[in-house]
Computed example of a mutant assay.
Amino acid sequence: MQNRTDVQLQMILLVVAPPSGVLFAVQRGRDELLRPFASTPERISFAITMRLGPALVDGAFNFQGPYAQGTPTDRFVYLNSGVRAGESGSPWERRAKIKLSGIPRDLVEVAIGDSNRAIEARIQGRARDGGPVCAAVQRGAITWHLATRT
């Protein structure tokens, strides 16, 4: 799989149990925002597409595209909330880093290039202080799954 380059990887980000009344968005590039495709009081859902470039020297996946932030060896996706998500007047101004290195390799290998499959991240939407999730999302606050379109 490491020789395949420029293939697409579908991702779904589910923000579970977000604090009520807080706007969330995924950051695209430096300052564009992606709104959710679905939202309920219990969960907020985003769909993004990543590209996989040539494998890194250590064989790790090379996540690329407008949602990939950071350096090639430390890629992440920003989940913005409050003011950073475009909610003027919010008491919150937060950004959470969803580290892509945490995605299990076997899930990526099954999902890449398959438009009927996606990697799904379930992210706890609330930080310890009760506000929106922020900083680097820790392993216990995120789980990775394979989603299949039926």
Rank of each mutant, 00 (worst) to 15 (best):
I44Q: 12
V133P: 04
D58Y: 03
I44V: 15
R35P: 00
N80L: 13
L79D: 06
Y78K: 11
D114N: 12
H145I: 08
D74C: 02
L107G: 04
V57C: 00
G59C: 00
K99D: 10
Q69T: 04
G131H: 02
S81G: 12
P54E: 15
N62C: 02
G140F: 10
W92K: 06
V16K: 13
L107Y: 11
Q2A: 11
G125Q: 12
D58T: 01
L56Y: 02
A38M: 11
W92F: 15
H145F: 14
T73S: 10
V133D: 01
R51C: 04
E93F: 01
D6L: 07
Q124C: 09
R43P: 06
P41S: 14
G59S: 00
A135W: 03
L23W: 08
S45C: 14
N3D: 14
V22L: 10
A141Q: 12
S90M: 06
G82D: 05
R28P: 08
V15S: 07
L52N: 01
P66D: 15
Y78Q: 09
S45F: 09
G70T: 00
R30H: 08
D129E: 04
E120N: 00
L34D: 14
G125S: 13
D6K: 07
A147C: 04
N62R: 02
Y78L: 11
R105G: 04
I98W: 06
G89P: 01
T143L: 06
L56W: 02
G125W: 10
N3E: 11
L23K: 15
L56F: 01
F76E: 00
E87H: 13
V77C: 03
I12Q: 14
P18Y: 10
L100V: 07
D129W: 00
R51L: 13
A111W: 05
S45N: 12
A127S: 10
Q2C: 01
N80M: 15
F37I: 14
D31M: 04
I119V: 14
G70F: 00
E42C: 12
R126L: 09
G102C: 04
G21V: 07
Q64S: 06
V7C: 05
G102M: 05
P72C: 02
A147S: 11
F37N: 13
P91Q: 07
S39K: 12
I98Q: 02
A127V: 03
G65Q: 01
R149C: 08
A60Y: 04
S81N: 09
L79N: 11
S88N: 06
G21C: 11
G102A: 05
R43M: 15
F63N: 00
A147F: 10
R117D: 03
L107D: 05
F24C: 11
P72F: 02
R43N: 13
F63Q: 02
A135C: 01
D114H: 09
R30I: 03
N80T: 11
E109R: 12
L34K: 13
N116Y: 02
R105H: 05
V57N: 05
R30A: 13
